[in-house]
């Protein structure tokens, strides 16, 4: 009897397959039943991405993206729970269901994508090796360091990247390696190096937090590498990947179209073009295909702003770190971020 039922259920399911592809994902359904989105936090602070403010509330770029996703699915940016996780713990925690998604400065690597059974969203941030130089040298790019002393941490991937880049560009230099990041930092601050190399956001944090006069240092514009940072999800729920991808895309489209948290309601009342009308749910299409409300993107932008606002608030010009958009700008402004086509 059970077998007959199961078999007929399978037949019915295969007949209904086109509709099922449109139906909402298991993860989204679970989130809606729970009424809470479980996001990854950090077991402490990861400057710019995950921090805690004076009122014991989480903030940062990754937290804002979690709030955006929460608003998209549940309509309220606060209906999430930030689960503090260490770096080592994040993937097992995702697999065991302690969190629904990892948005935690996590690089998209082949090993994680294949062996670890993860699925990545579109990259929302590109972090790579960059160099920081003393401001009084008056340089803005690596070419200006001709003949200078460049310091790196010994044995790191960044050391190789710098060596490669400088020889490819044919820039004469002296390279000095230091055993630890702390030694490297103090050597640079003691003026023993003209510039030193590290992960871009790390340089911005360092400039903002540990150096007396932040304006006295310049992060050079050259990107020596670009490691994509993306949201990670469990393999096997394509519907949820779609939701996360379109959450990120909607933030980018909003920025392209100039929709901000302040003008989103005016734009919805009077959409400038069909793309904006579609994005903000004035014309149907945004919601149904993802199993969400038609106004999800509008609610989300009203709650957290577009991608530019999120970036500027947490890492960019309105934050203490003042990290240039660089690669993390829209394609139309010299960056590499783009959204798929909204049809």
């Amino acid at each position: 009897m059970h077998r007959v039922l199961a078999a007929s259920a399978m037949v019915a399911a295969s007949l209904m397959a086109p509709q099922i592809a449109l139906a909402e994902s298991a993860t989204v359904k679970q989130i809606e039943e729970r009424g809470t989105l479980l996001c990854s936090g950090h077991n402490g602070s990861y400057f710019g991405f995950v921090e805690v403010n004076d009122n014991n509330e989480w903030k940062g770029l990754d937290i804002d993206l979690c709030r955006a996703l929460t608003t998209a699915i549940l309509g309220d940016p606060d209906k999430n729970q930030i689960v503090p996780l260490s770096w080592a713990q994040r993937f097992p925690a995702l697999q065991s269901g302690d969190v629904d998604v990892i948005i935690k400065a996590t690089g998209w690597t082949m090993g994680r994508d294949t062996e670890q059974g993860l699925q990545f969203s579109l990259p929302y941030f590109f972090g790579g090796a960059q160099l920081m130089a003393h401001g009084d040298l008056g340089v803005t790019d690596v070419a200006g360091l001709e003949g200078g002393v460049i310091c790196v941490e010994a044995g790191t991937t960044i050391e190789r990247l710098v060596a490669n880049y400088l020889s490819t560009e044919g820039i004469e230099h002296d390279m000095v390696s230091y055993e630890s990041a702390a030694e490297l930092r103090s050597a640079y601050l003691a003026n023993r190096c003209d510039a030193f190399a590290a992960w871009g956001p790390f340089l911005a944090v360092l400039r903002a937090t540990e150096i007396g006069d932040p304006d006295a240092h310049v992060i050079l514009s050259d990107q020596l590498s670009a490691e994509p940072i993306a949201a990670a999800m469990r393999q096997g729920d394509e519907g949820f990947v779609d939701v996360v991808n379109w959450m990120l895309s909607a933030l980018l489209i909003a920025e392209e179209e100039g929709v901000t948290s302040e003008n989103v309601n005016d734009m919805a009342a009077n959409p400038a073009n069909p793309r904006v009308a579609r994005l903000l749910g004035v014309e149907p299409g945004m919601g149904e295909r993802l199993g969400l409300r038609d106004t999800w993107a509008r609610d989300m932008i009203a709650a957290v702003g577009n991608f530019g606002e999120i970036y500027d608030r947490n890492l960019g010009k309105d934050s203490p770190y003042k990290l240039d958009r660089g690669l993390n700008n829209l394609w139309s402004h010299g960056g590499v971020l783009y959204a798929p086509i909204l049809d």
Binding site: G41, N43, G44, S45, Y46, F47, E51, V52, N53, V83, P84, L85, S86, A88, Q89, A93, V205, A208, T209, S319, P320, Y321
Partner: peptide, 20 residues
């Protein structure tokens, strides 16, 4: 702290874990 609990030392680190 390595399994994501905010004991007093971890929350202390978080307390200075913001640019201000």
């Amino acid at each position: 702290t390595i399994i994501g609990f905010f004991d007093i030392l971890a929350s202390g680190k978080t307390a200075f874990g913001t640019a201000d």
